[in-house]
């Protein structure tokens, strides 16, 4: 999600809440000799509101699971998740009086800091990376379809190479028929460099584009490799080579897309599980602290 001028009202509201909370904290903060902030009425209010913000932020997951629910636009939920989730940290810090606590409270504070930090990191990535993907991955595909597309690319490449070999073989056998000038111009040996290039370089790249040291994984080196290949084969095969080069380019873009996708969503591996643990332990803390 891009953080742009459409977030202005959320930003202003968040700053207003933060300012009011900071003012209340400055007024209501008890001196050190009067104990912790959490048990005071303002401290409990900070804790309750902060925890409510966390719950709201967590409800985004439920909202996403059931997109047909007509309870606000997904974009509004996302903005609420972002800003109220961010606000929960200062509110909980006001609740604790900027003390780290011990035992469960220390664990909760650690979880909250990690969750909010990972959320901020994720929000920054979600703001920046989609533009990078648009710029660098012109052949973007649906992420879940990526393996299927890769398989299709491999199959298409194999068919192109096999087709080129067959054409040269046909041309060699019935060359007098001379159906096309290009076919007439090639022999079976002429297609050997292409087959050799495919088997040695392109097939391993298409099978495992993340393997280390592959020339075709790099656009410049791939361009050089295909340029050299063009010099080794007759012009009749240049069209095939261009197709193969495009397949390699698409494969590289898929790899880049996969890499960026990992950055774009990988932080959620930390953010979501820790958020759930935070909510669970936070509820335990709230019940126990209020009860005792």
């Amino acid at each position: 999600m891009r953080i742009d001028h459409t977030h202005k009202s959320w930003l202003v509201a968040s700053l207003a809440i933060l300012g009011a909370a900071a003012l209340l904290y400055a007024v209501a903060r008890p001196p050190a000799s009067r104990g912790s902030m959490g048990g005071t009425a303002p401290g409990l209010a900070f804790g309750a509101i902060g925890f409510a913000f966390m719950i709201f932020a967590a409800l985004l997951g439920a909202r996403k699971k059931v997109p047909v629910w007509r309870i606000g636009r997904a974009q509004t939920w996302m903005r609420g998740h972002l800003w109220l989730g961010l606000l929960s940290l200062p509110l909980i810090l006001f609740h604790s009086g900027f003390r780290y606590g011990h035992g469960l409270t220390a664990l909760l504070m650690t979880l909250l800091i990690v969750v909010v930090a990972s959320g901020v990191f994720g929000a920054a990535l979600q703001h920046y990376l989609p533009r990078v993907i648009t710029r660098e991955v012109t052949m973007e595909t649906i992420y879940e379809e990526m393996d299927h597309v890769r398989a299709q690319l491999r199959e298409e490449a194999e068919q192109l190479v096999a087709g080129a070999a067959e054409e040269t073989a046909v041309a060699a056998v019935g060359g007098s028929s001379g159906s096309t000038a290009a076919a007439a111009a090639v022999s079976e040996d002429d297609a050997a460099p292409l087959k050799n290039f495919f088997e040695r370089q392109m097939a391993p790249f298409l099978a495992n584009p993340r393997a280390h040291g592959l020339a075709l994984a790099d656009a410049a080196r791939a361009h050089n490799a295909f340029s050299q290949l063009r010099m080794l084969v007759p012009p009749a095969l240049h069209e095939t080579i261009e197709d193969l080069e495009n397949i390699c380019e698409e494969q590289r873009q898929l790899s880049r897309q996969a890499q960026l996708h990992l950055w774009l969503h990988g932080w959620l591996l930390l953010h979501i599980p820790l958020s759930l643990a935070l909510l669970l332990l936070g509820a335990v803390h709230a019940v126990m602290a209020l009860r005792y």
């Binding site: 959490g38 664990l107 979501i272 759930l276 643990a277 126990m288 005792y292």
Partner: peptide, 28 residues
């Protein structure tokens, strides 16, 4: 991980409970 980490949190609470250490619930 979304199942494992909350489960780990429950184990953390249970571990303190089994040890009879209720400081984990202490309000302060």
């Amino acid at each position: 991980l979304s199942v494992a980490l909350p489960a780990l949190a429950v184990v953390y609470l249970a571990w303190h409970g089994v040890r009879g250490d209720r400081r984990v619930y202490s309000a302060g």
